[in-house]
Design a protein around this nucleic acid. Structure first.
Lengths: 121, 121
DNA sequence: AATATAGTTGAGCAATCAATCAACCGTCGT
DNA sequence: ACGACGGTTGATTGATTGCTCAACTATATT
């Protein structure tokens, strides 16, 4: 039994196209990469975070600014910014009491553009 | 009170940078668009769906093929394919008993590429 | 020192979600 | 007609998740 079918125990069906499975398995990125990719896109999969990222694309903003803009509490915004910080999508600088957030990745606008292209098909 | 602060009732803080909020609010895409965008990226925010999309990028596959490849049940794969179908990310053709799935969007590879670029920074 | 404001944090809760299970449909081979 | 197989579906369940609330830190003002 070739290595391509090592997972057959957890699967409830027979193999139909051995060649396809073998070829695809060889070319697939490794599991960890795809997990990281999913975790990244998870950040774009919530409307609040999308709005925050979209806003920061237009201007650096403090937590209060974002809260007023979206009509939400500082707390909820702060929680989301924490996630975005951990995923290295936003960065922050402190000026007195105020914490200013801005984008920390040049790929974000590209990801948005591709997504919008799909929406507006 | 300018219209830029119409949401101030749901917010628990004073406005700091009126000009920034006003400018950003004018340039932001409308709410519905951003909701749709989040719904799209939600599809990329799960490792099983990412793997399915990644596999279909390499070859057309039937449900059993994908199940064997990922070591999961037909049922769980079928459930995920249903979501991907509804979001117009994959299409299917039937040949006898077998249902073949393939990508239905040319932007997917672009989205993947941008995401991977962020991962591998 | 006292107060107010900007922001963070952890616990709790309701909603969302992905895998499981069992039942089912449709097509093929006999 | 029957059984086997590929695939779908709905209900259930355990886990994840986003917002709220309350408590807290830190900086600025008086």
């Amino acid at each position: 039994m070739p290595e391509a079918f090592e997972n057959i125990d957890r699967c409830d069906c027979n193999t139909i196209h051995e060649d396809v499975i073998f070829k695809v398995r060889q070319k697939m990125p490794q599991d960890e990469t795809l997990m990281d990719l999913a975790d990244l896109f998870k950040m774009f999969g919530d409307s609040t975070r999308v709005k925050i990222l979209c806003a920061l694309q237009l201007s650096e903003m403090c937590v209060c600014d974002i809260a007023v803009l979206l009509g939400m509490t500082k707390s909820s915004i702060s929680h989301q910014l924490r996630s975005l910080r951990q995923t290295k999508l936003v960065k922050h600088r402190k000026d007195g009491k105020v914490v200013y957030y801005s984008l920390d990745d040049e790929h974000i606008s590209g990801i948005f553009a591709q997504g919008l292209a799909h929406i507006c098909e």
